[in-house]
Each structure stands twice: as C-alpha cells, then as structure tokens.
C-alpha cells in the first residue's frame, strides 16, 4: 500500500471547476499548462471528467445557482481527493462578500457536505502561477 500512496503524490490529475467566477482565475489555470510554467513535469494533467480527477480546482465565489451542482461534482469525485480553493473569491468571497446571491466561500459550502474535506487555499486575484504550483505541492503533503 505504501508504494501506491507514494505514486499518488507523483501523478495528480486535476479537474477545473468554476463557480460564478469572473474567469480571470480560469485563464491562469490554463497558463499552468503552457511551456513557461509547465506542470506536466510534476505529473499533473488536466482531465475532462470529475471521475478521473484527484484534485478539484475550484475558483469563484460560490453562487446559489452553483452550490448544489458543486456539491454534486464533489460527491462524484472518487476519494481520496484534494480540493483547492484558489483566488480571493474562493478563499473568502473577495469583494462579493455581501452580495445578495453569493452563498459563501468554498470552504463554508463544502463543510456542510463533508466536514473532513481537505482544502488548500491559494489567495491572490488572480494568483500567480508560481503560487498555484507551490500551493498544490504543499497540499500533496497533507494526503
């Protein structure tokens, strides 16, 4: 079992989920795959289905539209899984904190469903790609 756990740290497949975001953080995720900040050398790959994912990259302040759907996607991801709340809107709701349709930042919404969820916070508006890489690698030590 130990070698399987070690190989988990060497190959993380991420699924990108955007809940009510302004799309700035989404563009930064795309930048991670470009030749300058190449994350494929760490084994990180972008997959198209939450069932294949090990890490959920959630950006955006969570909307009332998005809340049931986000929880559904979290349930469909096979555990063990890491949730990365990135961007200022994901960690706290950013400047949209008091708005009438924002239900809460990512961790407040996720704790209703699963109190033991492992969440990594990467602040920034948008966070720099170097910060994102460091955040994901720090998160790997938790699992």
């Amino acid at each position: 079992m130990n070698i399987l756990k070690k190989s988990f740290k060497k190959s993380i497949w991420v699924f990108h989920l955007s809940t009510a975001a302004c799309n700035n953080c989404d563009i930064e995720v795309l930048e991670l795959l470009t030749p300058r900040y190449d994350v494929e050398r760490f084994g990180i790959k972008l997959v198209g289905s939450p069932r294949h994912a090990d890490a959920l990259l959630v950006c955006g302040a969570v909307n009332a539209h998005a809340k049931p759907r986000f929880l559904e996607v979290y349930r469909q991801t096979p555990k063990p899984c890491l949730v990365v709340a990135f961007g200022s809107c994901g960690c706290s709701s950013g400047i949209f904190r008091d708005s009438y349709s924002i239900v809460g930042p990512v961790d407040k919404v996720l704790k209703e469903e699963d109190p033991d969820a492992k969440i990594v916070y990467i602040p920034g508006c948008p966070p720099k790609p170097e910060a994102m890489i460091e955040g994901i690698i720090k998160g790997l030590e938790v699992i």
Partner: peptide, 18 residues
C-alpha cells in the same frame, strides 16, 4: 517544455489503483 520523468506511466497506474 520539459516532460514528465521516466516513471510517470507507472505512477499513473499505481495512483489509479489507490
């Protein structure tokens, strides 16, 4: 770009079994 290291294929299979 640089690519993944040589054990990447094995790491993927091992991770999926976990």
């Amino acid at each position: 770009r640089y690519g993944p290291p040589w054990y990447q294929g094995f790491a993927d299979i091992g991770k999926l079994l976990y």
